[in-house]
Write a protein that binds this DNA or RNA. Structure first.
Length: 428
RNA sequence: GUCCCCAUCGUCUAGUCUGGUCUAGGACACGGGCCUUUCGAGCCUGCGGCGCCGGUUCAAAUCCGGCUGGGGACGCCA
């Protein structure tokens, strides 16, 4: 059976590189009806922290990545020591200064990589390596081999940064007569400028993207596209579509620069194509997670407002800032509105207020009809009246359609806010 | 320094294996236009690329070599 694994170390948050590696492994397993194993590489007792472990598994779940089995290396130290002893018995390893060293018996090694083809190593940077440290814990290359072999991992899919570890690991497999798995080394993610991933940028936790209002499906979709393409100019792919289309051979060899522009576009795309109820729930739980005061807005009310902003959001976090005037008692005129405020139209606004107050059933079509008629009677182009009205109601010069905004705001607030602008002009 | 990987628009990529159908296709970003009460969305449209040199061939983005450039690895971290 096909088995793959994702092996994070709980010494930090799950960041974009790790998430993408997990995603590729998971998709490959699901596509081929195989098993996806989560292996926690918590051998460093000092740096491993339970809160990181929690964060990593929460982030994976958020991205809809599930696992069939989970292992902890910290519970397997005896196993590693046993195999190290075996190597000593075979003369491939020896003990020195309380630690156990493996002797690399090197000759040219070929790695048959499923993504990059045959890779030949002519030299190793060292001829021995610590496999059991003096504190009794295993070294990375060793525990990795033992576990991949014992867990019967059939294909090791990991970042290209591990490519140069591969010949060393092959030597360990050979020394123990283990079956050597297939290898597939993913291209690395590069900084937006095309250079190396900076600690600042690359270290951004997945949970941070969630906090910023990115959708898990757009993040997953974007990550998969960083180094993989199904062809046919397909870009928007659900996890289940990806599960069908994915082939390891279609993975690129070239490092891919992370583009926030494209991620933003994709997130906005997912937002505006989401079913309105799903989007409203998504925003509601986002507000709850953020402990935002708008979190307890009644669902139906929230939905009315979300409808107006669905095509205007890049991330969920923009919603409370852009829509706050719907939920607040009063409006605040933003600096961007100042130029509109300079043109006093007190008389006209008074008339408009009066006309709007006569509407029974404050619906957008009735509002629009009355509004246009009023403008005509006043001998004004509609736009002349629209702009100050929008400022009066929203405090801004940009936003959703004015008539829909009025309907959702409600007659009472509309009249009250028009009145406020008239008074504001009078005082000036 | 040693070893390894990679190289198509600014970015992500299709095409490269099986050379001609590629005056290189799509997406993001950017420019112009349409729509329109603003913004956004949508629609139309433009800009822009096979890193360089040489070889093989009737023919090269596609095959070969070199160069240059970028990335990675060389911890009792993982």
């Amino acid at each position: 059976m096909l088995r793959v694994r994702f092996a994070p170390s709980p010494t930090g948050f799950l960041h974009i590189g790790g998430a993408r590696t997990a995603l590729f492994n998971w998709v490959y397993a699901r596509k081929n009806k195989g098993e996806f194993i989560l292996r926690i590489e918590d051998t460093d007792q000092n740096r491993s922290k339970p809160e990181y472990l929690t964060e990593i598994s929460e982030s994976l779940k958020w991205l809809k990545i599930d696992w069939d089995q989970i292992y902890y290396q910290s519970k397997r130290f005896d196993i590693y020591r046993d195999y190290a002893q075996k190597l000593i018995g075979k003369g491939s390893a020896y003990k020195k200064d309380e630690a156990i060293f493996f002797k690399y018996n090197f000759s040219q090694i070929e790695v048959n990589d499923l993504i990059r083809g045959k890779v030949t190593f002519n030299e190793l940077p060292k001829d021995e390596e610590v496999i059991i440290k003096k504190d009794g814990t295993p070294g990375y290359n060793f525990s990795c081999c033992i576990d991949d072999a014992l867990m019967e991992i059939s294909c090791v899919i990991r970042g290209e940064d591990h490519l140069s570890n591969t010949p060393k690991q092959i030597l360990i497999y050979r020394a123990l007569d283990f079956k050597i798995p297939d290898f597939a080394h993913l291209p690395l993610i590069l900084s937006p400028d095309g250079g190396r991933l900076s600690k600042r940028f690359g270290a951004t936790a997945i949970s941070e993207y969630k906090k910023q209002g990115y959708l898990p499906e757009s993040l997953a979709n974007y990550f998969l596209l960083l180094g993989w393409s199904p062809g046919q100019d397909r870009e928007i792919l659900s996890l289940s579509e990806t599960k069908e289309l994915f082939k390891l051979k279609d993975v690129n060899k070239t490092g891919a620069a992370f583009s926030l522009d494209k991620l933003n576009w994709m997130n906005a795309y997912y937002i505006r194509n989401k079913n309105i109820d799903q989007l409203t729930k998504e925003i509601q739980s986002f507000l709850v997670n953020q402990k935002h005061p708008f979190a307890n807005i009644e669902y139906g009310r929230l939905k009315e407002v979300v409808v107006l902003f669905q095509t205007r959001l890049t991330t969920l976090s923009e919603f409370p800032d852009k829509a706050n005037f719907f939920f607040s008692q009063d409006v605040e005129y933003l600096p961007e509105a100042s130029s509109v405020l300079e043109n006093k139209l007190s008389q006209e606004m008074e008339t408009l207020k009066d006309k709007l107050s006569q509407i029974n059933g404050f619906r957008k079509d009735l509002i629009e009809e009355k509004f246009r008629k009023t403008a005509k009677d006043l001998d004004l182009k509609v736009g002349i009246l629209v702009h100050p009205t929008r400022v009066a109601l929203t405090g801004r010069r940009k936003g959703p359609g004015l008539f829909e905004t009025m309907e959702v705001l409600g007659k009472e607030k509309v009249l009250q806010r028009l009145d406020k602008l008239i008074k504001y002009w009078e005082e000036k």
